[in-house]
Nucleic acid binder design. Structure first.
Lengths: 156, 156
DNA sequence: GGCAAAACCGACCTGACCGCTAGGATTTAG
DNA sequence: CTAAATCCTAGCGGTCAGGTCGGTTTTGCC
């Protein structure tokens, strides 16, 4: 698998947040319930989303989370990267500075190894697909899919 | 990281094979040496490539491996999939049949969950980039890159 | 025939990470 | 004060990556 469930859970969490999102924060337990995902696990994920500035939290009773930005401005790439770390098709792609072997081709100077070069295509394909989708689209898609337009686009 | 070093090593192995590839087989030790990769580990990888029909082997003294098909007909996607298994961005994407939660959205019938739907874009981006590159291109790229045309295209 | 070079095969080992749970500490509305 | 919530840290079982090792088999060559 390319992505773990972290990314999946996280995106679903964000979508659920966006759907339920009024002005007051939504308790994580409510989201976990709606998505039938383990609450304790979501706590870890949402912490990363918070650190990445994608959601804001309010502690204490009647606290919870809300989107830190309007859904239109949240790209899926941000969500995935916040949870999975930087998207790099290969190890040598991201750092390649330490002493390890990794790309033997690199050893002779500045030359980028051919495989590495080609990974950039893959990288581009992924990030393009991921960056080209906003959370708002996902929310809308899902609302349409479920045929309940209770909190649809017209609300705001 | 999206892909492990298996894919990387494997591709490099194939490229090296294509470069050294005359009519007689190349010993794995020679490839391991050229790429400074651990021989014992490559043995496992090349076994998968063999099972996938990408390389053919000759046992015994002066044995070794050679490409099973001309480099022009080997797509990078094949190499990667042979080593990493089928490319699926998510778990639920590939099987999603067993009893686990995975896509809670799926539980209510036939509806594909929105996130899953979007993963297909990612999947498309990856496979397109991967399938659109042949081994021959990689070999040529690398030969040009190294500026040593000793065993270049004109040899055969 | 026998030696050495190779492919083959399977077991194992270490470390990391994933998915998840547990239990508590801290903040805050009512 | 208390209950509801976020927050934090620690752990645990499983899987897999990356790699090593030792041995078996095939085969060219002298």
């Amino acid at each position: 698998m390319l992505f773990s469930t972290k990314a999946e859970y996280g995106v679903r969490l964000m979508v659920a947040l966006g759907r339920q999102g009024g002005d007051r924060p939504v308790a994580l337990a409510s989201l976990a319930d709606a998505e039938t995902l383990p609450l304790a696990y979501l706590e870890h994920l949402v912490a990363k989303l918070r650190d990445a500035g994608l959601v804001s939290s309010q502690r204490g009773a009647h606290g919870g989370y809300r989107l830190a930005k309007p859904a239109e401005e949240i790209r899926r790439l941000e969500v995935v990267e916040a949870l999975e770390g930087p998207i790099a098709p290969m190890d040598c792609f991201v750092d390649g500075v330490d002493g390890r072997v990794l790309c033997s081709h690199e050893s002779d100077g500045d030359v980028a190894c051919s495989t590495k070069f080609l990974w950039t295509r893959v990288h581009g394909g992924i990030t393009r697909a991921l960056a080209g989708t906003t959370l708002a689209e996902l929310i809308e898609f899902e609302s349409r899919d479920r045929k309940l337009n209770t909190v649809a686009a017209g609300a705001a």
